[in-house]
Simulated assay, not measured.
Amino acid sequence: MFLPRKYVLILLLLLALFSSYNYIIYTDTSAYGAVRLSGKAVQGEKLWLQNNCNSCHQIYGLGGYLGPDLTNVYSFRKRDEKYLKSMFNSGINAMPEFDFNETEKAELLQFLKEIDQTGKYPNTEAVIEADGWVKIQNQNSTHE
């Protein structure tokens, strides 16, 4: 059974629109929503990945569950930088010992500091509505 010509044209039009939409979305280089890290923080992120920190720790709830989420560890309880740097090498409980030098510790700290400035996790003010959209309390508009 062959489709009428108008259905084929509609299908091709929809396919072209879908392809155009995907091209625009995946090639957009605007800064909207992008986290820009400094060079020092990028080096810290590389250390984070090379040492597989995300297998135990999370950033924005993504990662392992053995250690705590470190999204806001920099500002959490006003911990000072000296404390955090000491945690990088010694850790507690099941965290393995690392041998980061002062430069590497400063880079990891800068990475966590810049991640901390991008937002809060978990967002305790967010409410998930019945339709699945997230609403921030004390705001009139939904679908944010």
Rank of each mutant, 00 (worst) to 15 (best):
I25G: 03
E104K: 00
W133F: 08
K78N: 14
P122S: 12
S38E: 13
W133Q: 07
D28R: 08
G44C: 01
K105P: 07
Y32T: 13
L37F: 09
F88M: 04
F76N: 04
D99S: 11
A130F: 04
Y65T: 10
Q117Y: 00
N123D: 14
D69I: 01
D80Y: 10
C53W: 09
N89G: 00
Y83C: 02
E114S: 01
N54W: 12
K40S: 09
N140S: 15
T29G: 10
K46S: 10
K85N: 05
T71C: 06
T71V: 11
L37D: 00
I115R: 02
D131F: 03
G61M: 08
Y23A: 12
Y23W: 14
N138H: 12
N22A: 12
V127A: 08
T27N: 04
L109H: 07
Y121G: 01
I25T: 13
K113V: 01
D69H: 01
I136S: 11
I136N: 09
Y7Q: 10
K105Y: 04
N54I: 09
N54G: 07
G39T: 08
N101F: 01
G132C: 07
K120P: 00
I24Q: 12
N72W: 11
N54D: 12
N123G: 10
A130E: 12
L47H: 02
S55F: 15
D116H: 03
I59C: 12
Q137G: 11
N52V: 14
